[in-house]
Nucleic acid binder design. Structure first.
Lengths: 211, 211
DNA sequence: AACCGGTTTCGAACGGCATTCGAAATCCGT
DNA sequence: ACGGATTTCGAATGCCGTTCGAAACCGGTT
């Protein structure tokens, strides 16, 4: 009962993910549309997930897992390349922000799910625990701390965490407030080229970790 | 007809602003609740503003004007203090991010209006022009460019604009993703003290503008 | 005072939404 | 082939924002 390993539960998640990617606005996502695309009825959503919110949360968690895996894989690669020396700072920063940048520019990726999800968390009751649990999950970011500490040993854990958080803020601004970024930079940066964007981000984040 | 200088139109805006501040989630804001608080009926919203969206946009614009005025006043003060020398970098950064930080920590301020508004812009049709117009209005940020250019003359306009944008991203992260910030910094920074937070932000933003 | 066109307010609709719930249908171990 | 548990369905519920025609209100003119 209420299992999400069920076949139609899977189809509902896939349909929800697909609709979240296509939809330019969140109001385009309705229980009826999800149900139709999954060849089911709206009540199936309530039955398998409890509510539409929780279905979206389940989908977002799945996408987050994929993104985080990519991040951690890049971090490991950066660490291995220089071991036993500390990894290259630019490479670590690129591992942190690169996957998000690349996903946000790749029209076939599921990045819209994540941006829609975070704004959805503010639309609905914040007391809903399943939302905060996913958003506040920063364990994968914690993995960056020891490596950055080896690069900048004069910073303590709080300093590192603070700078990590700031780097994430910069990334969010670029991926989520694209038009603002365009205007402020006079449309002179090719924001469609992930490599250029990542290089620009390294340019401002790296100094935070230097003396 | 359809005037927003009307008395009940004013009361609707005040009620909407108040509800947006009290509401912990956006779904708590309904046309009927706004109407009741303003001693009017839901149809009055459509009549005076066209739709609930546009009412919220009008309220957000009003609040933005107040915040921007405070920012620009601080910038002018920083410039005047050192004139004709270039202003102090730390002071300029504090003028940029300080008002947002202080508002977000002041329970009597209308800051929630702004954070709710930006996530609302993503919930509704992005093609709605009155939303983008407000969010993408970065003229007041442009005022910072010439001052920062005097401080860091080796950076061109694009570099300055990019760094400005990054600074805004850091500010958003701190004001809007508080719980993430708390966890990443091990709860070791007093995020309720605006002076401490602003100093921490200056600490990471200032190096972007140094050689 | 009575009138009147323009402006504002109101209340009863309308369609759409997520969700609930009891009944039907399906599945699977016996 | 049966029977209990699981899953699907469809009608009903209560909210939502918005629309619309009628009522109320207003200030200036007879």
């Amino acid at each position: 009962m209420h299992g999400r390993t069920n076949l139609t539960a899977m189809r509902l998640m896939d349909a929800c993910e697909h609709l979240l990617c296509e939809a330019e606005a969140l109001e385009d996502l309705t229980a009826r549309r999800i149900a139709i695309e999954a060849h089911a009825t709206p009540s199936a959503i309530s039955y398998h997930f409890g509510s539409q919110e929780e279905l979206v949360a389940a989908v977002a968690e799945r996408v987050y897992r994929r993104l985080n895996a990519e991040r951690l894989s890049l971090l490991r690669k950066a660490a291995d390349r220089r071991a036993p020396e500390p990894p290259d700072l630019d490479e670590v920063i690129a591992a942190l922000v690169g996957p998000s940048i690349r996903w946000s520019l790749d029209p076939t990726s599921s990045y819209p799910v994540l941006s829609h999800f975070t704004s959805m968390a503010k639309t609905h009751r914040e007391r809903a625990p399943h939302y905060r649990r996913i958003i506040d999950n920063v364990e994968h970011h914690r993995a960056f701390v020891p490596h950055l500490k080896r690069i900048a040993p004069w910073l303590d854990d709080v300093d590192i965490g603070w700078r990590l958080n700031c780097a994430l803020g910069i990334r969010s601004q670029v991926t989520r407030s694209r038009s603002r970024t365009e205007v402020l930079t006079n449309y002179s940066i090719d924001l469609d080229d992930p490599d250029i964007v990542i290089a620009r981000m390294v340019e401002v984040i790296a100094p935070m970790f230097r003396r």
